[in-house]
Simulated assay, not measured.
Amino acid sequence: MTLAAEGLFWSAGGAAILTDVSLDVRPGEFLGIIGPNGSGKTSLMALLSGIRRPLAGTVRLDGQPLSAHGRQAVARRIAFVEQQAETTERITARQAVELGRTPHLGALTPWSRADDAIVERALEAVDMAHFSGRLWHTLSGGERQRLHIARALAQQAPILLLDEPTNHLDIGHQIGLLQLVREQELTVVAALHDLNHAAMFCDRIAVMQGGRIVALGTPARVLEPERLHDVFGVTVEVERDSAGGCFIRYRRPDPRPAKLKLVAEAR
C-alpha cells in the first residue's frame, strides 16, 4: 500500500499554507513530519487523509488519485487521528472505538463477534479496557487521545496518519503510545512536536518550514544543529550513538540585555 503527494498547494484566507509539497511514503515505514507552528503540518495531514482536497497537486493511493477512491474505500486503507477530534454525542469509550469498524460494515457485513474482538484488542493496546463503560464527556484529554488511537487501530487500515498524537499525554504514555504504533505492521505518518520522539521512533523525517518541505531523510541526517536553529530558532547539541541514533540536547538561550535592564529597573 503506497501513499504519495505530488505538488500539493493549499491556501486559506488568501494566504498560501502549502506550496509545491511532494512526498513519497514508503510502505511499512514510520515517517515523521516536524516543523514549527504554522509550517503546514496539519494541513498536509488533512490532504493526505482526504479530508481536504488540494487546490493544486495530487494525493495518490496505490498509484491512483485519492479522489478516484470512494470514501469508504479510503477509510479501509487510511486511518487518521486528528489533532482536535472530538464528539458531543453521549457515547461510551467503547462505542467511540467501535466507530473504527464503520468502514467494514454494510448490509451484507453486519456487526459480528470478530468486530467485538478487534475493539477489545484495540482498547487493551492503549490501556483503556477498564474505561470501556465510561461516558466520553467524563474522560480526560489524555484518555480521549488514547481512545482516538484505539479507534484508529480498530479500523485496521494499513496506513495510519497521526496529527500530534501525544497531545494531552504524560511522558510515559507518550513514549508507550509511539512504541505501540511503531510495533504495528503499518505504514505510519505522524506530525510530531517533540524532536527527540521523532529521533527515537521515525525511520525518516520530513522538515517543514513556511509551507514547504525543506529536508527529508533519516533522523541522523536531518536533525542537524544548523538546520534546527534555522527552522526552529533554537540552539542545540546533537549527540549521536554507535547505532546511528541521535539525541537532541537543548541549550538555554543567552539572556537578553534589554530584558535584564527592565528587570533591574523594576527592582
Rank of each mutant, 00 (worst) to 15 (best):
D127S: 13
P110L: 15
V126Y: 03
R151Y: 07
Q84V: 11
H173N: 12
G141V: 10
P103S: 07
R151F: 05
P103K: 04
T109M: 07
G210N: 11
E124C: 08
Q95T: 07
L99D: 04
L123E: 04
L162I: 12
A206S: 05
R121Q: 14
A150P: 00
I171H: 10
R151M: 09
P165C: 05
E143V: 12
I175T: 08
M128N: 04
R146S: 03
P110Q: 14
L123K: 00
L161Y: 07
G172I: 12
I175Q: 05
I118Q: 13
H130A: 12
A152D: 08
R101F: 13
L169P: 06
E86K: 07
D203T: 03
L178G: 00
A93L: 06
A154Y: 03
E86P: 03
L161C: 06
M208Y: 07
Q209M: 06
A96T: 14
C202K: 00
R121W: 02
R113D: 14
A206Y: 09
I118C: 12
L135G: 10
E120T: 13
T138P: 02
V97F: 12
L180P: 01
A96P: 01
G210F: 10
R113Q: 13
Q95I: 02
R204T: 11
A117I: 09
Q174V: 00
R146H: 09
Q155A: 13
Q155T: 12
P110F: 11
L192N: 02
Q174A: 01
N167S: 15
R90A: 14
A117Y: 06
I91T: 11
T138L: 08
A96M: 15
G100D: 11
L160I: 04
H197L: 04
A199D: 02
Q179C: 00
G106Q: 12
H197S: 04
E183L: 01
L192E: 01
P110I: 14
I149S: 00
V181D: 00
I91S: 09
I175F: 08
I91L: 13
E164V: 01
P103C: 05
A114T: 15
A96S: 13
E98I: 13
A154D: 04
I205Y: 01
D127L: 09
L139P: 05
A157P: 00
H148N: 15
H193M: 09
G172A: 15
H173T: 13
A198K: 00
I91Q: 09
H197E: 03
W111N: 11
G133C: 06
M128G: 02
A122S: 10
E98R: 07
I149H: 00
E98H: 09
F201I: 00
D163C: 08
H168I: 14
D163Y: 04
D194I: 07
I159V: 15
E164D: 02
W111E: 15
A93S: 08
W111G: 11
E86H: 12
A107G: 09
